[in-house]
Design a protein around this nucleic acid. Structure first.
Lengths: 339, 339
DNA sequence: AGCCTGTTTGACAGCGCTGTCATTATCCGT
DNA sequence: ACGGATAATGACAGCGCTGTCAAACAGGCT
């Protein structure tokens, strides 16, 4: 049988409760005692039994990561970040894909909460903004952290100033001489779509460019929606010279559609994305994009959540972004000296 | 407080043990009783407490998915498959990235096993073939399932006849008139690399083509290694007209390097990959590849594992593959009628 | 020394479930 | 109708830990 807390206690000559206090960083243990116990824990290789701990303390030391996000790259990074934070605090993480459109969405969440009783949830867009879910969580008193929520004033989580980033990206395109800059929006359920659209408009304003509604087409953050959007944009009588896509997947779709029509990027068309997922480096030409530190955001959101579980105050932390200028953007056709 | 097993028992007028028997599908309960209890469970919305269950039964109803795989697409699919199987059997899943090259690799596994006491492990390449780990698991008596293991004769898991698939792919290239077909191998630690290389050779043999060692370059299953390999291949005095890359990521790298050199795919060079990840559809031109049903493999491996945990016999199940012919392969340059 | 206060430690119950084993109900053959 | 077998059910302990509360101890004051 494995070594239990009793074994450690006997080894040091104290009660198991004192060992428990040390392991849980509770106050009122003399430093010398604390040290002796820590040593015994180490030499015996004691590992507390998670089930017994949960049962006795009615805490599961488990946090669940909920997602309904089509981008594996993004999710994998977030997941790794959350895991980092969990490991540091000896929590475990479980991941749950959860289709937010499903009719029994709330029931599934209820089942998840009842069955595993996670101490908290981390949510990614678009679940992040599911009003019914948030209400239910408040009702049940389950703490949660949100990544890129629409409302940054309430709760805890991580976000990024997407609006400013989008604006900066559009300004960059304008500085390359582009005058007809299109935007493929993201999935309407994601807060990011709104921020990025606003940033796009900010950018046009700052560059003194007109707003042409024809140049804004709806996407869904997916590759396919990027292909479809690009086809519409490229069929326009006066086609754009640059496309700011809602994210990298969509940008890859635009790139694909452009290539299919024999257009050269960036010579005939500049394209840029958002997120800086590995995909942005794996397409040709590699994508100019906005670096979003998804793993950091996952980690920070989880850290905030763990703090909130401990009763501390928290907030939605804003992380920095950075433009990644690569090969998919270049001077506007008319501006280019050659040809 | 939540509804407990006692509440259900009281509601039906039996002992909690009988309810427990029904919930765990144990024998020796009358069908009528079973039904009454099931009904009460449903109306009360009873959900067993996982911690109490584990503590009492010394089973965790938890299986851990271990990975050290650089391809998020692949991992996400496997993960979803494993989750499917776990959900069906009311197990929970935890995921653990675990760098197999780390010096403290085995210690980390030990810590994981002690802390969470999973009832079993699912492993993906290259962890699948880590001799030290397998030995340790046998020692500790921890059941595990392996996805795409080198040795398919022992244990349980899921695999695919990669050799035959690779052979078929090379034959396809040969049938398009290609005579100089290169291969970028996979990461040496992955069993798949070996199978695919053997299949490549089989294909050359079957097409009656010579083996030119110059045309086999080492890769690592990564995009970057594909770029590097392609640079070497394309610098050859007599360059290949087709490249069979070890996987889709590598193929994307080859595509990228070819584009960077101004080569047109498939007119100047045919490229194909392996795995049929979403990436293969998101690059231009879309990749001819081998469909590997990773999600099915994850599900099957987990099902086999759960059966093994229950003491049943299992095996390494082989799943079918399929060639996906897309735009990145075409007739060999000399064979093409035009130009 | 004696008292009070605050700190450190321990005894013990109990978290919600399952394993074991005793007990009771049911079935079968004669 | 009656043993004897087997099936169905229940009583109860205990999994390994933490919460509660009481006991012991230490320190500072008169």
């Amino acid at each position: 049988m494995r070594v239990r807390i009793e074994d450690v206690a006997r080894c040091v000559g104290v009660s198991s409760k004192t060992v428990s206090r040390v392991l849980n960083n509770e106050p009122n243990v003399r430093p010398a005692m604390r040290e002796r116990i820590m040593e015994a824990v180490k030499t015996l290789g004691y590992q507390p039994n998670a089930s017994a701990r949960s049962l006795a303390s009615s805490r599961s030391f488990l946090i669940a990561l909920l997602y309904d996000n089509p981008s594996p790259y993004y999710m994998m990074e977030v997941q790794n970040g959350v895991l980092e934070a969990c490991d540091a605090r000896r929590y475990s993480m479980m991941v749950r894909p959860l289709p937010s459109e499903a009719p029994d969405f709330l029931d599934r969440v209820d089942a998840l909460l009842s069955q595993f009783q996670p101490d908290g949830l981390v949510m990614t867009p678009p679940i992040t903004d599911h009003a019914g879910l948030l209400e239910r969580l408040h009702m049940r008193g389950v703490p949660y952290a949100r990544i890129s929520p629409k409302n940054r004033e309430q709760g805890v989580g991580a976000t990024l100033d997407e609006r400013a980033a989008a604006c900066e990206m559009v300004c960059h395109l304008a500085s390359l001489g582009h005058r007809r800059i299109a935007h493929v929006t993201g999935h309407p359920a994601h807060g990011a779509s709104g921020w990025r659209l606003l940033g796009y408009r900010d950018g046009l304003d700052r560059a003194g460019l007109p707003h042409d509604p024809e140049l804004v087409v709806e996407g869904l953050f997916s590759f396919e929606s990027g292909v479809a959007a690009a086809r519409r944009l490229l069929a326009l009588p006066q086609r754009p010279t640059a496309v700011f896509a809602g994210n990298d997947d969509t940008a890859a779709g635009v790139l694909w559609a452009a290539a299919a029509q024999g257009l050269s990027v960036p010579d005939d068309l500049s394209v840029c994305g958002f997120d800086d997922t590995p995909l942005s480096r794996q397409v040709w030409p590699s994508l100019t994009t906005v670096c979003q530190p998804s793993q950091d955001m996952g980690r920070i959101a989880a850290q905030q959540l763990l703090r909130a579980i401990d009763g501390a105050e928290g907030r939605v932390v804003s992380v920095p972004y950075a433009l990644r200028l690569r090969q998919s953007t270049g001077p506007a056709p008319a501006d280019r000296p050659d040809r």
